[in-house]
Design a protein around this nucleic acid. Structure first.
Lengths: 152, 152
DNA sequence: TTCAATTCCTAGCAAAACACTAGGATATTT
DNA sequence: AAATATCCTAGTGTTTTGCTAGGAATTGAA
């Protein structure tokens, strides 16, 4: 039940992107430098968010990324699902993903997986990106270095 | 954010064990047969639950396993944590596991991981094994074959 | 007392997933 | 033209997963 580095790095990157893209597009390299993540790897993560419609890209020099919609309209759930795929703990846990499971009626544990899935989704869908950006500004004020001993 | 086969098989095994161990100890081989899980693998899973104090073993012929306490005192959380280790999505998410993370103060995402962790634990700690046993009897009455096309 | 059934313990191993790295092509500003 | 970006896909070492295997120890029953 662990999140991969995709989810961990990716959420940090999105908070950074939201925070620094208000005036001009933010480049991968600047996020990578601030967040201490490999540029090449980060490229892929941001690519996933673009594919999910969370960010827009501007190509060419002085290009970069901006949010595709307001930070208060992007949930942590949107971000984590873009990065990790469905957050359901077992693939049959979501109501819409029953294909592939022929034992849906007689399966006791499915009920458990669904409850876990629901509680995770409720939590992450409620948390919005703008809250985290505000939190970020409080914890690491402009100009000060962020602390990156923690890779989470 | 997926549960491994340990968690999936193990919970099914525990429901089975609870259901069939009321009169006499249940052997690994009988659980394995009913639940269609490899005996050798199941041994290891039940070993984890023993280590966690959820089941007691009786060695020798006619031996097997019984619950170490009443099914209504064993939560799904107890079982899943015994099998999977902590369910926290990121290793810094639990309040008691801050060691190893030096950035606890300036870490924005930690707040997110803690919220997810809390919601998962609340859900799984609330669900008790006896409920699932009752559910199991309803869905798969005694004597009828269980459906095992689904490996969840 | 022997033997069959059971738990117990550890090691090994193939396959899959993960966490990147690499090499370039394409686009845009200066 | 050069510099700075995004974009796309393939490759690759490491770790984790999901088992299998071998055998020792324990106990009830014949």
């Amino acid at each position: 039940m662990k999140l991969s580095t995709k989810g961990r790095y990716g959420l940090r990157a999105m908070i950074d992107l939201a925070r620094y893209s208000e005036e001009e597009p933010v480049s991968i390299s600047s996020i990578a430098a601030r967040q201490d993540i490999s540029e090449r790897y980060l490229e892929q993560l941001v690519g996933l968010m673009k594919k999910a419609g969370l960010v827009q890209s501007i190509r060419g020099a002085t290009g970069g990324y901006v949010l595709a919609r307001s930070a208060c309209e992007i949930s942590v759930g949107d971000i984590l699902r873009a990065l990790e795929g469905s957050l359901e703990p077992v693939k049959c846990a979501a109501f819409y993903s029953e294909e592939g499971c022929m034992a849906s009626d007689g399966c006791v544990t499915k009920y458990v997986w669904q409850k876990i899935n629901e509680s995770i989704n409720e939590t992450v869908n409620r948390m919005m990106l703008d809250e985290l950006v505000r939190e970020s500004r409080t914890l690491n004020p402009e100009g000060e270095l962020e602390n990156h001993k923690c890779n989470a």
